[in-house]
């Protein structure tokens, strides 16, 4: 089911949490709402769910205006950050809850409920835990039960608030993969909130970057990474080096292959990804760049370079390259190096 948000605004007292949000999410997408804490992403999710009321704006699900509909009538599935499992009910009763509270007219028979509950528990691979209570489960298990419970009411939209936020790193990795596969299988339009850009890029088919209550950019993970719309997105997604243009630096920029446009002014800044920087041993002792240190990141090496700015203060530049390539360069700490910029984004 497609989701359309138009002109959504929300204030908490003096604080403006969301500001004129317009967003279209096509059917079947798995969307990440990504942003730093306090950017309004959870508020937006809760407004879509109906757990929070927007001050202004409309919410359309599949073309139907649901703005004034109560949360219980919206047909959404919501997975809470801390799962919010009913602590006094077994896993089975938790998952069956949504079917049991339906009006008598629409309520399935108890045998149908049981059948469906077991099917859902099998879907999340936890049927063997059906008679346990939530406090007897691990974090990852609780998360999957919360998901099964939300799916039991056949929601048209699935909303997940920081679904992996409270889990161990290793469990998180598995669950990300699992969620993506599950989404493939069910194809229900889903939105999840996260502050972790890696998670957003790995799991989502569409990423919406939020900052200070506004949408900065929306696109596929590749689009966001390769063509950041502005300085905020560029800095928030992946690592980046900033090269500020000034009268002193133009020549050096040309020298390292950073193309400076004719119309550029001193407030322009180039963003360069670490893997877009090539380095080589310098033959020139006066090169302003020194190799300071390096760290192993598995297959890659992260290299810390010091560049002395014309005013004498050092600036750290990060470069990344495969392990093997770095070994071949035979560099030591303190060596002078030459830079070569392969690709840069200019912002002004």
């Amino acid at each position: 089911m497609s989701i359309l948000l138009s002109n959504i605004s929300k204030n908490f007292g003096q604080f403006s949490a969301l500001h004129d949000i317009d967003l279209v999410i096509p059917e079947g997408e798995l969307v990440a709402l990504l942003g730093p804490s306090g950017c309004g992403k959870t508020t937006l999710l809760r407004i879509i769910a109906g757990l929070e009321q927007a001050d202004k704006g409309r919410i359309l699900l599949n073309g139907d205006d649901k703005t004034d509909l109560h949360v219980s009538q919206r047909g959404i599935g919501f997975v809470f950050q801390h799962y919010a499992l009913f602590r006094h009910m077994t896993v089975f009763d938790n998952v069956a809850f949504g079917m049991r509270v339906k009006d008598k007219k629409y309520r399935p028979s108890e045998t149908d409920i049981a059948k469906k509950t077991h099917a859902l528990l099998e879907l999340v691979q936890l049927d063997w835990l059906h008679d346990r209570f939530p406090d007897q489960l691990s974090g990852g298990q609780r998360q999957r039960i919360a998901l099964a419970r939300a799916l039991a009411v056949e929601p048209s939209v699935l909303l997940l608030d920081e679904p992996f936020g409270a889990l161990d790193a290793s469990v998180r990795k598995d669950l990300r993969q699992w969620l993506r596969n599950l989404h493939h299988e069910l194809n229900v339009t889903s939105i999840f909130v996260t502050h972790d850009q890696e998670e957003a890029m790995e799991v989502a088919s569409q990423v919406v970057v939020l900052n200070k209550g506004r949408i900065e950019q929306q696109g596929s993970p590749a689009e966001i990474y390769d063509h950041p719309a502005n300085v905020f997105v560029s800095k928030f997604i992946g690592q980046t080096n900033e090269f500020e243009l000034s009268h002193h630096t133009t020549d050096w920029f040309e020298h390292i292959g950073l193309q400076v446009a004719e119309e550029s002014t001193p407030d322009w800044v180039a963003h360069v990804r670490p893997h877009d920087i090539e380095i080589s041993k310098s033959t020139n002792d006066n090169s302003p760049v020194t190799l300071k240190d390096w760290q192993h990141l598995g297959a890659l090496i992260r290299i810390e370079l010091t560049k002395f700015l014309p005013n004498g203060s050092p600036k750290i530049v990060y470069a990344e390259m495969p392990n093997e390539q770095f070994k071949r360069l035979q560099l030591n700490r303190g060596d002078k190096v030459d830079l070569r910029i392969r690709h840069a984004h200019w912002f002004h």
Binding site: A49, G50, L51, H70, V71, S72, Q73, I76, G77, F78, F80, H82, A84, L85, F86, R87, F97, G98, V101, K102, A146, R149, A150, A152, V153
Partner: peptide, 13 residues
């Protein structure tokens, strides 16, 4: 109030 919100989101009055 998370558990109550969860119940509401599952369609409970």
């Amino acid at each position: 109030s998370e558990e109550e919100e969860a119940a509401l989101s599952l369609g409970a009055s």
